[in-house]
Design a protein around this nucleic acid. Sequence first.
DNA 1: GTCTATAAATCGATAGAC
DNA 2: GTCTATCGATTTATAGAC
Lengths: 202, 202
Amino acid sequence: MTANAEAGKRVRRPTGGAGPLLEIAVGEFITRGYDATSMEDLSRAAGITKSSFYHHFTGKEALLRAALERALNGLFVLLAEPGAQEGTPTQRLRHIVVGQIRLLVAELPYVTLLLRVRGNTETERWALEQRRAFDAQIAALVRAAVDAGEIRAGVEPALAARLLSGLVNSVVEWYRPGRPGAAELPEDVAHAVFQGILPAAS
Amino acid sequence: MTANAEAGKRVRRPTGGAGPLLEIAVGEFITRGYDATSMEDLSRAAGITKSSFYHHFTGKEALLRAALERALNGLFVLLAEPGAQEGTPTQRLRHIVVGQIRLLVAELPYVTLLLRVRGNTETERWALEQRRAFDAQIAALVRAAVDAGEIRAGVEPALAARLLSGLVNSVVEWYRPGRPGAAELPEDVAHAVFQGILPAAS
DNA sequence: GTCTATAAATCGATAGAC
DNA sequence: GTCTATCGATTTATAGAC
């Protein structure tokens, strides 16, 4: 997907300082919102002028695109992993849930940005389309798990898939790096999904 | 709902009072994002000029404040209901979850806007503070339910409370008015919370 | 209550020197 | 690669006629 691995071109992280600049920009986008963040804000945060920033990126939208590509790439790499392709539907679902939380923790700013996209520009609409494609695969797996009789049909499969995605994605709203218990978070979330968030003590 | 179908008044597109204008503005804020929506966009959607819009609201932020107040009022009214104050912690939690989904369906645009607030202006920071106060009450109830031995401690109570709020709030991301099954949605979501989203078939 | 006209500031982006 | 300077468009908001 990333059009970098072409021809004889070296596959490298964006050259001399573009990498750090992207990281700074994404941080600003997260705290203030993409639309509310100006190129002036970005260059001030980076310690250079607006003009210098334009030397590394063609514009504001190019920054957004680079960030969204990084997050989406992580999601589709996860779907392609053996653990997401083999086993029962339920086993595959659990692997994906755990992987999503791991990705979210590892790439928090990029995933957060992806989940806040509204669809104002062409880049944003493209990202929304990619997200829908990912969600559709999750929904198909949920249906397969129900059809196979692996999980109880407490609610409609389509609704269960929506709630599953909502719960997993909501982690970006409160998780912060360095938080204690980060290592157990993926398994804890999977536990909540399959055993219930607030299961009755019976 | 639309205050247009009153008396013998003709149903006409353009303005009228501040009520319809607020509804139009919130709709625009939702689809494009608050920061990406200009007063020009709002007046065009309302069928009047920018100046006329300023006659009804002192500015863009006043519109946001009115909308957020409406959503927050619904949340705190819910917390004050008898069903949220009486009974076991688990019963109270279930009442609140069901009430939150009902509120969300009834006041979708206003609640959606509230959940997207970032904290750029004084009004937004005030709204975030109110949301935190609400979430704290939910977290306290979850702890109380665990302490009373009513629910199994599969995950840490603080984490369970976060996931609970995340799952409930995520409904604004996909629910749309007129959707079939809207009447059962509150109970379905509560079921997913207490019985599990994808419970193993045993 | 609505309009035209415009102020004052900020926006994304570019030109060109060093 | 960084800078100063600036363009043209857009932004929030106001003045004042009708």
